[in-house]
Write a protein that binds this DNA or RNA. Structure first.
Lengths: 109, 109
DNA sequence: AAGATTGTTAGTCATATGGCTAAGTAATGT
DNA sequence: ACATTACTTAGCCATATGACTAACAATCTT
């Protein structure tokens, strides 16, 4: 499997798509409503939605002629965890450096 | 300003670049060491580094013939915050739904 | 000084990405 | 039935992205 994070970060690297996510965390919406604030052609917008759906960030169901889109929050959490992890490792390193500095302080005051 | 998150997420959407970040959170390293584990040509790898540097995730200094690269953790934190924010909004919505359900329960038991 | 290391620059190539228009389909409103 | 709404599909275009080789430059090492 080509890492999940690939498609996630790829999906989030576009402002239109991030805006859609920002909208969807407040609740599901039909395609037309999601499209409205964006000044791009509908087909172009639909392909952004497809990217989001392919990345697993979003799902949709069609009822009648309306397709309703909703967010799938899990991938957000996965990415958040990854970032947090990196930060913790990095901070741990800082802590280690601080500890080392302190140790040097004690050894050679 | 074209959102900071654009270049950040774009930078993180590539596995090679994420691997570099994962390595760099444990401490700075010269280009050659960063390149070693990756089975791609050096020039190709250098362009990945440039993407990371352009996105502000990484900086580097050259001393003699060795260029040492180190991470800039702030962008990681910014992205983590953004994701956390989205999650909180989403969870807030869940809470509101739960509250609504509870309210309905009480109204019509 | 000669050779090995460690990048760097330049140029090519294939594919992916983000945008468009035009035309089509399936529901729904009148 | 007909028009309108709400997507869908198909196809085109320009630019960006990720990979390569070849050749160059600047340090060490010996």
């Amino acid at each position: 499997m080509t890492n999940n994070l690939d498609t996630f970060f790829g999906a989030m690297s576009d402002p239109t798509r991030r805006a859609v996510i920002e909208r969807l965390v407040t609740g599901p919406a039909p395609v037309s409503e999601l499209h409205a604030p964006h000044d791009i052609a509908l087909p172009t917008f639909l392909r952004h939605l497809k990217v989001l759906e392919d990345s697993g960030l979003v799902r949709s169901e069609k009822k009648g002629r309306v397709r309703t889109v909703h967010i799938e929050a899990a991938p957000l959490a996965v990415a958040e965890d990854w970032l947090q992890n990196q930060r913790l490792i990095w901070e741990g390193r800082i802590d280690r450096l601080a500890a080392l500095a302190e140790q040097i302080e004690r050894t050679a005051p």
